[in-house]
Design a binder for these strands. Sequence first.
DNA 1: ACCTGAACACCGTTCAAGT
DNA 2: ACCTGAACACCGTTCAAGT
Lengths: 215, 215
Amino acid sequence: MPTLDLDQDEIVAVSRELIAETGLDGFSMRKLAAALGVNPMTIYLRFENKDALLDAVATASLADFQAPTSNGPWATQVVDLAVELRRHLVADRETLRLLGDGDRLTSGLLGAVDRGLALMGQIYDGPAETVKAFRVLFWHVVGSALVAGTVSTLPGTQGGLSEAFAAEGADYPGLGRYAEHFGPVDPEELFAYTTHLLVNRLEADAGSLPEEALS
Amino acid sequence: MPTLDLDQDEIVAVSRELIAETGLDGFSMRKLAAALGVNPMTIYLRFENKDALLDAVATASLADFQAPTSNGPWATQVVDLAVELRRHLVADRETLRLLGDGDRLTSGLLGAVDRGLALMGQIYDGPAETVKAFRVLFWHVVGSALVAGTVSTLPGTQGGLSEAFAAEGADYPGLGRYAEHFGPVDPEELFAYTTHLLVNRLEADAGSLPEEALS
DNA sequence: ACCTGAACACCGTTCAAGT
DNA sequence: ACCTGAACACCGTTCAAGT
């Protein structure tokens, strides 16, 4: 591996800057080359293609995450981890869209996975149950982050939904009754609430394993 | 509005076929025009641009959903609705990626929203609590669908993750302990389990409102 | 050994021109 | 009134050519 003026790390760093500025849609190999002051083809000497470069960008973004190690009650520690991980993923929403592979996602977040497993291991005895509980929370966090990254506005934020619901009241009687209560949603608050529900239920389950499955 | 050989509905129908075949990335206005046997520019007489067309595609896909009206225990009806809605969204994962606006998503799924609200209204007294409980479940479903659509493989499906985790055992003691239990995940099963946790917790909450918030 | 320019096969979209 | 061809400003990537 020869010493190079332009190494992979610099290409990734500049790529992340550009993506943060112009979004993933406005990002191109040619613009990246221009920002690097280099011929577009030079990048292909370091990365096989655009996909491989974006892989490296996503990996670098995930590696930035530092799992919080708060003290306090167990449930608070779990919620902290969930909230912080979601915040990190949402902050880098453009690169979150690049994660097309679950293995890459979890292996890129080893610190978070380690911390999450440790917390679940505190209340679950069996390793299978521990991993399952971890997965419930982990994918809940990722799902919520994807919602935040994909769906730019949650219903009601823009206004007008109540009116639309009320107008459909004839066909959908349930809508008319609740239309006026479809006010703005705070995505963070909704996430925190759902997380609390899950954490409380996981905590309760751990105390009384095995519980009868519902279906 | 004159009678036209090529109306919006046909363009949308053919677009959906092409997207189902080649994916969203392989879809272009030029290929669509070729499939329609028409000049690319003719499409622009019906739709302002590609974005407007994709909007119509997403709306049409959502409109296809028929909310199930199963009988049986309350929790089963709720889980049915959640599972069916997720299945519909995942089946059309390419168009799910088009939903960039929460209002469009919910107003495109009025039947599901109506049914969900009706179910939650059965156990919650106040409309605010009913809407909140509905939102917890609705966005949980959308989040899970986005995970399934964005993250093509959940960890372990490909194998190799256990080894990767074990290798990092030195830095992350928790990982080493659970590495061998990171087997394949069935996304549907994980979704069903998480949904059960949420539904059970919502049901319990409804019986004892208001409950003390955790934070 | 390392970098590049020209070229290929695509895009979405504009706009003047055809019938 | 309705449709289209040529053109513009972009893409990712290949490959022969330069130093």
